[in-house]
Nucleic acid binder design. Sequence first.
DNA 1: ATATTCCCCTGGAAGC
DNA 2: TGCTTCCAGGGGAATA
Length: 275
Amino acid sequence: MPELPEVEVVRRALEPFLVGRVPLSFRVSGKKMREDVPAAVLADALAGRPVAAVRRRAKYLIVEVEGARALVIHLGMSGRLALLDSAAPGDRHDHLAIAFDDGRELRFNDARRFGRVGVHYLSAPGGVPEFLAGLGPEPLERGFDGAVLRAAIGARRTPIKTLLLDQNVVAGVGNIYAVEALFRAGVRPDRPAASLSAPEADALARAIKTVLRASIRQGGTTLRDHRIPDGSEGRFARKLLVYGRAGQPCPNCGRALSFVRQSGRATCFCAGCQS
DNA sequence: ATATTCCCCTGGAAGC
DNA sequence: TGCTTCCAGGGGAATA
């Protein structure tokens, strides 16, 4: 589910409800996730400290509390966050519940348990945890363009689509939006990354920004798991041009869309429109 | 250093 | 209907 747009949609939905709220108590499932943390550790670090900010870096959600410390959440493949009345019924895949001072709970539900939950101390308020320092540029921040993209690529000849999935090259792009951006930019996914010309890199950077912004406006892409914290689904799936459409006609030229697997991840593209 | 493959886990869809 | 196989938005470790 969660690539940059989905995490950003969740962030925007949570921010107005969480900032200023005070986390009081924590419950965990005790099930093993990619990263998990005992309730006592959460309470020691976070309890009683008002939420100062809800930020995002790449696909990580950063809930900072006063005192320069943060709850860091990664939704993995199937993670959902919901803000519910504390009396609301739970689910077998709830792995964390945080009770706030307004009687509501933030619940993290994750069937596949590829998600991560951690507590991190920041060097200063407003900072980003040290373990995220190596991430690539944020594509929706000022200054992201073809030149920045080419600098991030360097001399690497790995297929461009594989590189777009590398969070240390561009932060937040996942399989859906890599495929969509390459189609919109007219660039074949198997092109050696360093072979992109300056105009091609410009087009790709623009396409990345365009598709991410468009998806955020639609609430993200719900294929199955993604939910906005109020429980509703994102509406961008119907706007996808090529993802998941191998064999169907290209929306641009009508030719059947091709399918290849690149380092284990499904890729579709139009052999006529992308070069 | 770089490039695939495997694996973590559940559940939904498709095939037989 | 029921069982089996395959596949999925991520990403990190292990392996060439």
